[in-house]
Each structure stands twice: as C-alpha cells, then as structure tokens.
Nucleic acid binder design. Structure first.
Length: 218
DNA sequence: GCGTAGATCGTCT
DNA sequence: GACGATCTACGCT
C-alpha cells in the first residue's frame, strides 16, 4: 500500500499465476466461521510489494465467533474503533497490534454487521523450508510485513493482498482448543483451532500437538 | 522438554 | 492503570 510498508521476507517470493492459483468468491467468506477456519488451512495468503508477489501456505487457523465468544474482540457486540473491521463484509482483513510489539492478521467472515473472523496463526514458505519463519501469528505478520496499514483491506478487489485456494487434495486437519485465551471461561474449551497435521510449521506447545496426534478428530 | 518471566504499548475501563 | 488472540530467553529436569 504505502511506501513505508515493511517488505516481506524474500524467501516468500512466489508466482501465483505460474501456480495457477484461483481465488474464492465473496460468498465463501460470508459462510460459517468455523467451516471457513477449517477450509483456510491449505490455502495461500499472498501479498504484492513493489510489483513482486510474496506468499505462504496457511497451516494453522483459529475461528473467533462474535457475540457469544468471550475470547473474541467482538464479544457481546463490543464495537470500538479497533474492532470495527470485524464488522465488515466477509473477505476483508482485520489486523491488530498486541503485547506492544506483535501484529495479528484475521480474515473477516460472515456478512457485514456480523463480527466474526479467522485468525491466521501459521504458514509455510512456498518452498516448504524454514518451518519457524511463519510459525505463530506474530511471526506470520512479521515475515509478510503485515501491519495495521492492511487493516480493513479487501482480499477480493484485485488489490495487493489476496487469498488463493489450495491445490491438490485437502490437508489432514487436526482440531484443538485455541491458544492464549485462558481468560475466556467456557469458550476456552471450544474446538476452534485448525491445523495441517502433516506440517512442521504449526505453532503452539508440542504437548497440544501430541495429544492431537492420538485424538482422532476427523 | 517444560515452566516462568520480561519486553513493550495500544486499547479500553 | 491494567491487560493482552505473543515471542524469546533462560533455568531446570
């Protein structure tokens, strides 16, 4: 967007056209948030900077439901300037700043007025290397140079941020509770974290992953 | 491998 | 004034 935007890591350079990646229709993003969270695993997040495309294959997400979800910023219909992008139409970005040093990027879901979103927690490099580079929501944003200048950006208007469908078969999906939401009462027990069971770039405690390897969710 | 503490600041009460 | 949808370093086992 502006010239001050951080340049993505060069290891993320890729060519979505050569890969024949296709986009989703708006209707996809207006669907059920939990379903979208699951289906975003295996898709490609892409950003254009100085005429070049940088991308990463998403391997971990979390769904944040609106009104009833005590872990969501939009809990009980909270509507402050920060949360406002969550109320946009499905297919927009909600990027916020946490802990005084990290950014987190979300894909807004449902239609305008319903504040739900999917947090992008981890991804893989186009060549599959560097499992740590994009592992964790803060690192994901740092590597792609995502800051609040992308807050509210539309993923479907042919702009500089886009989301492409995955290629090949659907990944094997693991499901757990969400990370870092221990304060959220009952909501912290909800199975809203989705990840590619075969990816080494998935974030979070090894213990959680291991439990999952043995629990045959889906 | 595991648990804890500290960094650091925008946001909301 | 308190608290994060996090990450890192460090100490211990």
């Amino acid at each position: 967007m502006t010239k001050t935007d951080a340049c993505p890591d060069s290891r993320l350079l890729f060519d979505p056209e050569a890969m024949h990646l296709r986009e989703f229709p708006r209707a996809f993003f207006r669907g059920d948030t939990r379903e979208i969270g699951r289906r975003l695993v295996g898709t490609w997040f892409a950003r254009r900077h100085s005429g070049q495309w940088y991308g990463a294959r998403i391997v971990e997400t979390e769904a944040y439901l609106g009104m009833e979800d005590a872990a969501a910023h939009s809990y009980r219909g909270r509507r402050t300037p920060r949360v406002e992008p969550m109320y946009m139409d499905g297919g927009h970005l909600y990027v916020y700043f946490v802990y005084g040093m990290h950014h987190c990027a979300n894909v807004v879901t449902r239609r305008a007025g319903i504040a739900e979103a999917v947090l992008l927690r981890a991804a893989e490099c186009p060549d599959g290397s560097n499992a740590r580079l994009l592992s964790g929501p803060g690192r994901f944003c740092a590597a792609l140079g995502l800051t609040r200048s992308f807050n509210g950006a539309d993923l479907l208007k042919g702009g500089d941020v886009r989301l492409f469908r995955g290629r090949g078969g659907a990944p094997r999906i693991g499901i757990t509770v969400r990370i870092g939401v221990d304060y959220s009462g009952e909501a912290k027990t909800w199975p809203l974290r989705f990840f590619d069971r075969d990816s080494s770039a998935v974030s979070g405690p090894a213990r959680l992953k291991k439990e999952l390897q043995m629990t045959n969710y889906e």
